[in-house]
Simulated assay, not measured.
Amino acid sequence: MTPTRHQTVAIGDGLTLHVTEQGQGPAVLLCHGFPETSHAWRHQLPALAVAGYRAIAPDLRGYGSSSAPTDQGQYSILHLVGDLVALLDALALDRAVIVGSDWGATIAWHAALLRPDRFCAVAALGVPMMGRPPRPPSQLFPQNAEALFYTLYFQQPGVAEQELERDVATTLRKLLFAASGDAGPRLPGDHTPNPFGMVSRAQGLLAPLNTPARLPAWLEEEDLAAFVRAFSTSGFQGGLNYYRNLDRNRELMAMFSGLKVQVPALFMVGERDAGLSMPGMRDIIAAMPALVPHLTRSAIIERAGHWLAQERPQEVNALLIDFLNQLAGNGTA
């Protein structure tokens, strides 16, 4: 097996990305979500390398050992896609298949939408491609006197940071468990605490979430420790700034309204993904072919939650490698 390589890559404007990679061959760029780092792809890196691909997993802007600008305006979708284009340039790569989970999926969809010349195919985990919202997201998400949607809770600088950084290990233990398949099925009328739902104005995000007596089987103590080290160093502000650009992203994407993802695409989601409980999410997934005409498959992974790459690596790797091999067979990858 080829060794894992770590490097710090300059991407311009004084910014750097910490990159973990493994393997040789056609490039596959792996984009993590919130709250994760490139360590979320620990099972995909060696599997892709063995399959004959060069797997590249950066800590995205604001995460881990990568640069974290203090200006929240520097975290728009155009900045994030721009980082990945610059990363390909720095690595002397003409193109790559882009894979993303959670926020990384949103970035991956937009990278394929805006730069199909550089991102020749896309695979997304957990978050479907969505059209431009009819109104600013801050006006669409629910809130009342007692609670507000989690994305709204993340908007005020310093508020969520204070709660999440109070005890980083507990924060990550709760969030990773609560959004996983181990937290249980998400059924109509189910009151299982959902980190992607409403947040109590009085209690905050974490208090209602269960603290697991032991970590789920897919998350070793050393893996949790790796995430804790990263967020103890970086804090959560960088990741939260992605959410603080939701309204701005809508403005910036106005000129691309109606544009479709014109590269081959794969989508997969966990049967127990907490995001599926969001109103209208299943309809959005069903309607994706209108926005992604070359969508080859939408796969539902049984009993899995939101952290697919970590929770169900064998199923994810099999689907991903089959997709990549098909691309290679027709000359796309």
Rank of each mutant, 00 (worst) to 15 (best):
S67P: 12
S67M: 11
P69T: 05
P69E: 14
Q74A: 15
I77R: 06
L78Y: 06
L80I: 13
L80M: 15
V81T: 15
D83G: 05
L84M: 14
V85Y: 02
V85D: 12
L87P: 10
L87E: 08
L88S: 07
L88H: 06
D89F: 13
D89Q: 14
A92L: 12
A92S: 15
D94F: 01
R95C: 11
R95A: 14
R95L: 08
A96V: 11
A96W: 03
I98H: 02
I98P: 01
I98V: 15
V99P: 00
S101K: 09
D102Y: 06
D102S: 04
W103C: 01
A105S: 12
T106G: 14
H110N: 12
A111F: 10
A111I: 04
A112H: 01
L114V: 10
D117E: 11
A121E: 03
A123T: 01
A123H: 00
G126K: 00
V127N: 01
V127S: 02
P128F: 04
P128S: 11
M130V: 10
G131V: 03
R132H: 06
P133A: 04
R135F: 12
R135H: 08
P137G: 04
S138F: 13
Q139F: 10
L140F: 07
F141N: 10
F141I: 02
A145K: 12
A147S: 15
A147F: 08
A147W: 09
L148F: 15
L148M: 15
T151E: 14
L152C: 09
Y153Q: 05
Y153S: 04
F154C: 04
Q155H: 04
Q156R: 14
Q156W: 01
Q156N: 12
V159H: 09
V159A: 13
E161L: 12
Q162I: 06
Q162G: 15
E163H: 10
E165L: 07
D167L: 07
A169L: 09
A169S: 07
A169H: 08
T170L: 15
T171D: 13
R173K: 11
R173A: 07
R173L: 12
K174V: 01
L176M: 08
F177M: 03
A179H: 00
A183W: 05
A183K: 02
R186P: 13
P188K: 15
G189N: 12
D190H: 06
